[in-house]
Lab assay of single mutants.
Amino acid sequence: MATGGRRGAAAAPLLVAVAALLLGAAGHLYPGEVCPGMDIRNNLTRLHELENCSVIEGHLQILLMFKTRPEDFRDLSFPKLIMITDYLLLFRVYGLESLKDLFPNLTVIRGSRLFFNYALVIFEMVHLKELGLYNLMNITRGSVRIEKNNELCYLATIDWSRILDSVEDNYIVLNKDDNEECGDICPGTAKGKTNCPATVINGQFVERCWTHSHCQKVCPTICKSHGCTAEGLCCHSECLGNCSQPDDPTKCVACRNFYLDGRCVETCPPPYYHFQDWRCVNFSFCQDLHHKCKNSRRQGCHQYVIHNNKCIPECPSGYTMNSSNLLCTPCLGPCPKVCHLLEGEKTIDSVTSAQELRGCTVINGSLIINIRGGNNLAAELEANLGLIEEISGYLKIRRSYALVSLSFFRKLRLIRGETLEIGNYSFYALDNQNLRQLWDWSKHNLTITQGKLFFHYNPKLCLSEIHKMEEVSGTKGRQERNDIALKTNGDQASCENELLKFSYIRTSFDKI
């Protein structure tokens, strides 16, 4: 039985969820670079991206490699990797027998973001014989899940209580170790020597080791999670996991709180800001991140802002960003909400898709409305799209047979046209069989910064309504002859009103 693990408890099935942008060198404390989270699957090609990484700022997932063999891993080693800020997950990587050479110096898994409450997941690794993470000293947050690894031993010899604050939620089941077939031998045991430290858990006094050649490092209890030197002297209180010299914040392997210019500090002093819960960055760093993602459509890219001495992905609820200094300031009234469309555009074809934009005031991208039916549609669209004030790209209304009016965009005031449909149009209306009105132009103002209007096959939309939009939106004169079809717009509506004058002759039985 794995020490510190839980057996036999019912657990939810383990679901495996399925960018080499360097964020800056980590400095003297770390020998390499800070790398983003990685999802490495199918083959070993991307694994080489770990070569210079000291910190993975995010998670590391290595999974679904069915053609790899043990010899493929023999020359692979990433000794610079010290810390993973989120979680480490391995799933069905064939041929991998140990992690001792792959990650010989991995010391800390912070667990800032977890995989279903777990910071370390080893699942269905069919050839893994031992973990071998002999320098792993601290899992700051989260638990361990090690399950269905039929060859995995050296679990009962690990004292997880020396690595985690609590072992109650560890789930370590259905491994070879369960069948008591392992016969784990710690260093020196074969020669009758006791080389590794022994600890007591559940009444068992057991030597602690990761492999037959690597003991588990056990520091004096007084050192807590700070770690200790090879001689057993406690590291500085700002260290986490390990250090090369005692009581020196510049000799830590990793930091308990924050890293700044080669030393570990309790908090980031001005003019620095907390970033990702582990390091200090200056304003320029946060500003660069903001600008890199301002026009990016890459998933996970955030326009970072500053709030409460932190550089964070977005302002919290009730705050909006001051564009001059990136500071989050309290909103006066309802907060603006910028919604970034991942692929640059979004099609609204149902109430469900409209709900995804609920509360958005600025759309960074283009909207395509293609709704053919739905219950209580006008009210639903207004509830979900009615706060949109600005669209950076274009607005396209296409084959939306259920629409009679666009009044559900009740606050839309600006279409920038930074991206144009077919390279020309910022407003595009095609084949809307029941569209009769755009907006009530006596109450609604709309500016279209650039781009043209396109109207074709809107049989109940009168040309007068379209011409009014040209005047109000500032697009009059931009359109070419064929942009607004004269014969297919309003051709099934009563669009022309003329005053009919009647004269009559009164007659009676005795007068003409």
Rank of each mutant, 00 (worst) to 15 (best):
L88M: 09
M38K: 15
L327R: 11
Y272M: 13
R263K: 08
P249Y: 04
L131W: 00
I306C: 06
E33S: 14
D169R: 14
Y259A: 14
M137A: 06
V206L: 15
S323G: 14
I56S: 06
H274G: 15
S98T: 07
L88T: 00
Q61S: 02
H307I: 07
L106W: 01
L50Q: 00
C252K: 05
P197I: 14
H127T: 15
S98D: 01
E57F: 02
V305P: 02
G32Q: 09
T199M: 06
M83V: 08
R297Y: 09
A156D: 06
D247I: 00
N195H: 14
C196W: 00
K217H: 08
S143I: 04
N322K: 09
E130F: 06
A119T: 02
N150E: 02
G203C: 06
D277W: 07
C235T: 00
N170L: 09
R256T: 10
N52T: 15
L50V: 06
I222W: 10
K148H: 06
K129R: 10
N195G: 11
P249N: 13
G232R: 07
P336D: 07
H226I: 08
S213H: 08
N117L: 00
N282E: 14
K294G: 10
L120A: 06
E314G: 10
V218N: 02
Y94C: 06
H307P: 01
D159L: 08
N282C: 01
F205R: 09
T189I: 12
S213Q: 08
P220H: 08
H214V: 12
R298G: 11
Y134F: 14
C328S: 01
H226V: 14
R256A: 10
A119W: 01
P31L: 12
Y272S: 12
P36W: 09
C335R: 03
V108Y: 05
Y30K: 02
N138P: 00
A198W: 06
L99V: 07
C215N: 06
Q303G: 10
Q204V: 06
P269H: 06
D261W: 03
V121F: 00
R256D: 06
V108K: 04
S161T: 14
L29W: 09
I62L: 06
R141E: 04
M137W: 08
Y304R: 06
C264Y: 02
N138S: 09
W160T: 01
P271S: 12
C215L: 08
C215Y: 03
S161I: 05
T68R: 06
T199H: 14
I122W: 00
V34A: 07
G318A: 08
T140A: 06
P269A: 08
A230Q: 14
L240S: 09
P330Y: 04
R279S: 04
T68P: 07
L260F: 03
N325C: 10
T157Q: 04
C286Q: 01
C223Q: 02
T45P: 12
C335T: 04
E57R: 02
Y30D: 08
Q61R: 15
P246T: 05
G58T: 01
L81H: 00
A198E: 15
I62K: 00
A119D: 02
H236P: 04
N242D: 05
L99F: 07
R69W: 02
C153P: 00
P334V: 12
E71L: 04
R279E: 01
L136W: 01
P79F: 04
H59C: 09
S166M: 07
S324Y: 07
F116M: 01
V121H: 05
P330R: 10
I172L: 14
R162D: 05
V218E: 10
Q245V: 08
D261H: 10
N43W: 15
L99Y: 01
K217G: 02
H302T: 13
I139F: 01
I109C: 00
M137P: 00
Q287V: 05
N105V: 06
L44R: 12
F115R: 01
S161W: 10
D75C: 12
C228Y: 02
L136H: 00
N322E: 02
S296L: 07
N257M: 02
P313D: 12
N43K: 15
K310W: 15
C293Y: 07
L152W: 01
Q216S: 02
T250E: 11
T194I: 12
T107L: 04
C235R: 00
P197Y: 10
L60V: 05
Y87P: 05
E207W: 15
R298P: 10
N325E: 14
R141F: 03
Y30C: 11
S296E: 10
I222Y: 02
P270C: 04
P79V: 04
P249C: 04
D86N: 11
D277P: 06
V265E: 07
S143W: 14
L152P: 09
L99C: 06
A230H: 14
R263M: 13
H48D: 15
L164K: 14
K129Q: 07
T199L: 09
Q299K: 15
G300H: 08
Q204W: 04
H28D: 08
T194L: 14
N150P: 10
V167M: 00
G188M: 07
C219T: 01
P270T: 08
I109K: 00
G203D: 14
S324P: 09
L120I: 15
P316Q: 04
H48E: 12
L260V: 13
R74K: 09
M125P: 01
H214G: 03
A190Y: 14
N257F: 05
K80C: 05
D169F: 15
F258H: 06
C234N: 01
C228R: 01
S166Y: 14
H212D: 15
L106C: 02
V265F: 08
G188T: 09
C239K: 03
N282M: 14
M137I: 14
L240Y: 08
S161E: 10
N325S: 06
C223H: 00
C280S: 00
F283L: 12
N195C: 13
I122C: 07
P316C: 00
L44P: 09
N138H: 10
F103Q: 00
S143Y: 06
R74L: 02
D177V: 04
S98M: 02
H48W: 00
N242V: 07
V34K: 10
E97S: 08
D165G: 11
L240R: 05
D72S: 10
N242A: 07
S225Y: 10
V93R: 00
H214K: 05
P220V: 04
I84Q: 01
V173L: 13
T68I: 00
N309S: 12
E33P: 15
D169A: 05
G203V: 07
K80F: 03
I201H: 07
L76C: 06
Y273P: 03
N149S: 06
Y134M: 11
K191M: 13
P271A: 12
F115P: 00
C315Y: 00
P269V: 08
C331L: 02
D39C: 04
N309T: 10
S98W: 00
L102G: 04
P220T: 15
T329S: 08
R162V: 10
I306K: 03
F275C: 00
H212P: 13
L174W: 10
D261V: 11
S284R: 05
Q216H: 04
D277S: 12
P330D: 07
C264S: 04
F78E: 00
F66V: 01
D248S: 09
C311K: 04
H59S: 04
S166F: 12
I146S: 01
C315E: 03
S225N: 15
D75M: 10
H59A: 06
E33V: 14
L233D: 14
C335M: 01
N195Q: 12
E207K: 05
I84C: 00
I122L: 09
C328Y: 02
Q276I: 05
R279G: 07
V200N: 13
R263P: 02
E33N: 11
E51K: 03
L240A: 09
K310R: 14
C286T: 15
P316I: 06
G203R: 07
R92L: 01
H274S: 15
N149I: 01
N138R: 14
E49L: 11
F258L: 09
E180K: 15
H226M: 14
M83W: 02
C53V: 01
N135Q: 09
H28N: 09
H48N: 15
T250M: 09
L106Y: 02
S323L: 09
G300N: 11
G232C: 11
L88I: 12
E207A: 14
N309D: 05
A119K: 00
I82W: 12
L50N: 00
G262R: 08
A230R: 14
G232P: 11
N309R: 13
N135E: 01
H302K: 03
N195V: 14
A198R: 12
A230F: 07
K191L: 11
W278T: 07
L327E: 11
E238C: 09
P246A: 06
G58V: 00
N195L: 15
G192L: 12
T140L: 06
N105H: 05
F285I: 03
K294V: 03
R92A: 02
I222L: 12
